Computed example of a mutant assay.
Amino acid sequence: MACRLSELVVDCRDPEELAAWWAEVLGYRVLSRDEDGAVEIGPETGFGGPAPTLVFAPVADPSPGKPRLHVDVSPSDRDQDAELDRLLALGATPADVGQTGEENWHVLADPEGNPFCLLRRRLEPPPTPERPT
């Protein structure tokens, strides 16, 4: 059996603020808060579900320089242009990582400057878990 991606950890200055921002972007909710200040967000299914969770861990000074990992997001209920407008309204900013301008994706940065890409391809939203009635 192979491993499965279960969570991504992001070092940041303000875990509460960045977790809230990414929760809004992804339609996630806060799953837990640790004593050390880390905040975990994820889908309704929680940790171990079909999508990985994100853990925002507090660090005094996140490492500068080019990150070795970034997140790609895809629109799920609108086209790429409408999603770009939504992300910019939430506080994302355009980022230049050396792209040519011919790409069919947008490179943006979250409020702490972490780059991520908005892809063109629209994905269906994940199924909502059934709740007991």
Rank of each mutant, 00 (worst) to 15 (best):
V30C: 02
E112S: 11
A23D: 15
R13P: 04
L87T: 01
G27R: 02
P115F: 05
D96N: 00
P115K: 10
L54G: 00
K66I: 06
P43A: 09
C3Y: 12
S32F: 14
D72A: 12
P62A: 07
H106T: 12
T45N: 11
N104G: 02
A20M: 08
E7C: 08
D11P: 01
F116T: 01
E102D: 11
E40N: 05
Q99V: 02
V9L: 09
P43K: 05
L84V: 08
S6P: 00
E44Q: 10
R78H: 14
R29V: 04
N104W: 14
T93D: 13
C12I: 13
A38V: 01
V107P: 03
D36N: 13
W22T: 08
R120C: 00
Y28D: 10
R33H: 10
A2H: 06
D81S: 04
K66Y: 05
W21E: 00
V73N: 05
P62S: 07
P94V: 13
D11L: 00
L119E: 15
C117A: 09
D79H: 01
E40Y: 07
P132T: 08
D81Q: 15
V71L: 15
P129F: 07
L87E: 09
A95G: 05
V97M: 15
E112D: 11
R120N: 07
L69T: 12
C3L: 07
C12M: 06
G113I: 06
R78D: 11
L5V: 00
L90W: 06
S32L: 11
R13I: 03
M1K: 09
N104V: 11
R29Q: 15
L31R: 11
I41H: 08
S76Q: 09
L87M: 15
T53L: 05
V55G: 05
E35N: 08
D72Y: 09
S6T: 13
P132Y: 10
T128P: 03
L5F: 04
D77F: 06
A95D: 03
S76D: 10
R4N: 09
G101I: 02
L18P: 07
R13Y: 02
R86S: 13
G91T: 07
W21L: 00
L90R: 10
L26W: 00
A19W: 01
N114C: 03
P58Y: 08
R131T: 12
E35S: 10
V39G: 14
N104F: 10
A19K: 02
D36P: 03
Y28C: 06
V9F: 11
P52V: 13
D34N: 09
P132Q: 15
E16M: 04
G65T: 03
T128A: 15
E83D: 14
L123D: 05
F56L: 09
Q80E: 10
A38Q: 11
P67W: 14
R86H: 13
R122H: 08
G42A: 01
L87N: 13
M1Q: 11
V39A: 12
A57K: 06
G37T: 04
W21K: 03
C117V: 06
G27D: 12
P94I: 11
A89E: 08
E35H: 10
D110T: 05
D61L: 05
G91M: 04
A23Q: 14
V10R: 01
G27A: 08
Y28R: 04
F56D: 09
E7W: 05
W22L: 08
F116M: 02
S32N: 14
E83R: 10
P58H: 14
H106K: 09
S74Y: 12
D96Y: 00
G101L: 07
P94D: 13
H106W: 14
D110M: 01
